[in-house]
Write a protein that binds this DNA or RNA. Structure first.
Lengths: 295, 295
DNA sequence: TCAATTCATAACTATGAGTAATCAAATAGA
DNA sequence: TCTATTTGATTACTCATAGTTATGAATTGA
């Protein structure tokens, strides 16, 4: 004899509790009446509580039965809700998307994506975390993040990477820096300047790219300061601590007294990429990735 | 293949979700690992949702799995509570007691019983309804009430009845009614008075008893008013609309300008009885009845 | 490369849910 | 007052399936 209540018992109990009639309840359940009687009896034995009073011609609920009926109805309602919700979570219409990003991704890509997600999948919850390139790669690998927005040249083979935004670089100069923009004739003239860059540890690709730009211009930059925040870099430039080269899109979104000079003619580009796990199982990620790459 | 989730599935799912290890989970459940694997797989098929990601060496929860884990934990906690509560309801430590009563039972018996119940069975909820004798008998028979407090001579054979309070009758007279209490010499002198009584339909036994008192005194009372509320009766007496005979215990609990004269020397008594169904199944009733009859 | 893990698969066993046939008791109708 | 009908319970059976053992395939670490 089994000694554990099963959902079957609860289903049968509810049918009898509603019909107050074993034969009718059995019909409704598409089982035979003896089978139903035995299951109910077994249920009462397991719970050590009488649920029905039967006096050969009438069936009624005991107080315990009344109580249980209400509770079973609640439990079934709840389970139905869970089952519906589970489908949604499984289909990616609902759930959570954990996003890592570099500060520079906040200018364009992320806000646009968040709006699209909110419109198409309003039940999806997003969480954002600003992290370095390396920390994002690590977190995605560990399944602490679903996706990351990074500037890296390559990632481990278990990750996917797609470029989502390509940007030119711009020189960042103090507002009154003596230079006629129309006569800008290359990087060479900045060989003697102090440079303020994003930390190498924070973004190796960026760092290497800046070095290559300078190298193409025939000099190695004198690096005076390093930072992980664009805002800090701009402040330093503003206060004549040096000049910087950053992705052009950082021009928007900061209040600052600096001058941007877009380096259109050099081949280097700042590429922002999404990364995610190849074999992820988050349906929300799949849906949102489609939005990001197609929309 | 079964196509319905059972509690077994949820139990197994929770074990795996907690251990994130099939063999360990199977050990904890005292079943074999292949059996567990198959049940989980079946569960995923029924729900049409993948719950775990297994890559041959590691087991992890999918987002849907995470969601379901929380929900299953909630459901199990709830069910445990229900099971405990069900035992209490079955034992009569918890539950509901629906009580019917006559206004006059509110003077002594009911408040005392409610206090005792509250002390010994604090989880028991009581509901009170003031009803006529007939309505109470009817409601107890229909299982709308668990117990009733009535003044009747007899009840249908499916009900039990026990006297819980015996009371003398008292004459109710206007405050300044001319009478020397020490020289009270019988009912005879009130033969000409108007009488105010409880309605016959409300309490036939009371009605008959009053008639018998008067008959013993050698007269038939002139009945001027009938009421179902003691308060109304007292008000009428106060305003010289007549005199009344009521159970003595009604002397307490009302603010009124009337005089009570206890009829100690007549044989009639006002008996208050509890009634309940012989074959009831409410354990709360059983326990509370013991309190009432023994305490 | 080998030993030791992991979970999945396959074939089998045995428990117990569900069945059909029947019973005993209660009701309703003649 | 006697059926005829209806109720839920009981009995004996069968068959679906949860759980078993044995094994396989893949991963990991020495």
């Amino acid at each position: 004899m089994s000694n554990q209540i099963e959902l079957r018992h609860l289903t049968y109990f509810l049918a009898v509790a509603q019909e107050l009639h074993f034969r009718k309840a059995a019909e409704k359940l598409f089982i035979s009446q003896p089978g139903l009687s035995r299951q109910i009896k077994q249920m009462e034995e397991i719970l050590e509580t009488q649920l029905f009073e039967r006096n050969k011609k009438k069936v009624g609920l005991t107080p315990a039965g009344h109580y249980l009926k209400k509770e079973v109805e609640f439990i079934f309602n709840h389970m139905e809700k869970v089952e519906r919700q589970l489908k949604l979570v499984g289909d990616g219409d609902s759930g959570e998307l954990r996003i890592g990003f570099l500060g520079s991704a906040m200018q364009q890509v992320i806000p646009k994506m968040l709006l699209q997600i909110k419109e198409k999948y309003p039940k999806v919850k997003t969480s954002l975390e600003e992290l370095s390139n390396f920390a994002q790669v690590d977190a995605v690998l560990k399944n602490q993040l679903d996706m990351g927005f990074v500037r890296v040249s390559r990632v481990p083979s278990t990750l996917e990477m797609k470029t989502v935004f390509t940007d030119t670089f711009s020189l960042v100069l103090p507002e009154r820096y003596p230079m006629l923009t129309r006569e800008f004739d290359g990087m060479e003239r900045f060989a003697k300047e102090d440079f303020i860059l994003f930390s190498q540890a924070y973004s190796p690709l960026y760092y290497d790219t800046i070095l290559s730009i300078c190298k193409d211009a025939g000099f190695a930059p004198k690096i005076s300061h390093k930072s992980v925040h664009a805002h800090t870099i701009f402040k330093l430039v503003e206060n004549h601590m040096g000049i910087a080269i950053v992705p052009t899109s950082l021009q928007n979104g900061f209040q600052m007294r600096v001058k941007f000079v877009e380096l259109k003619d050099i081949p280097q580009r700042a590429e922002l990429s999404v990364i995610w796990k190849k074999e992820h199982t988050n349906p929300v990620l799949k849906n949102c990735m489609e939005l990001l790459l197609e929309g």
